[in-house]
Amino acid sequence: MATLYYLILAPMVYLAVAVSVLGTLWRIARLLRAPAAPPPPPIYPSRKPSWLFALGDALLLPSVFKHNAPLWAALGLFHLGLAALFLGHLELVADFKALQLIPHSIFLGKGLIGLTVLVCLMYFLCRRMVSPTKELSVPEDYLLLVLLLFTVLFGAQMDWARTWFGYSSMGVDEYRGYLSSLIRLKPSVEGVTSAGHSFMLVAHVFFANLLIMAFPFTKLMHAIFTFAMNKFRRG
């Protein structure tokens, strides 16, 4: 079991990041290498500067707001939640002053943001089980949602899991020690593998690894491509 934990928490993380970074670069390079064709016209009426409106389209999803407000709200909460969780993970790596503009203690693992994201994911999943989105969906769509769901579920409820042991085991300092050791390329997993709820962290990291690896080979790339696409539409 210890070996399995180690493999997931150290080598698999590096593998996932390598696959993800190289895969993403390969996808982008492929796009840039592709021949240029005369672009079709943009959608009118056009507004200038087009790059600014394209950025607005990519970040604020105004067309979703106009045509499906509940979905827009869920997408907004979901993506903001992901951004907050990303920043939360940065806080585990080191103390960044910029992140303490609003002073706060480490919030990661307390579950509130994670729960919000979970509710959004459940909504996305249910949406895909009903027509007409059902007919548009392919297995990839469900699989990614399930992967996200598991990743968030195990990550977000870490604090709750600590309550089983009266907060006596593995907490923020241990998470920090593990994550910063990974960044320093000197992985140290001892602090996070012996606690009663270590399986939560291992499961979280395992599903996160799968997600990170899937990134360049799935529709998750929309996170990057949306800017170029929206710029094309704006002209």
């Binding site: 067309s63 979703v64 979905l71 989105t133 548009l136 769509d141 529709k219 491509f225």
Partner: peptide, 8 residues
């Protein structure tokens, strides 16, 4: 490559 099949 960008479609997320959201159905909007």
């Amino acid at each position: 490559e960008t479609c997320s099949r959201c159905g909007i």
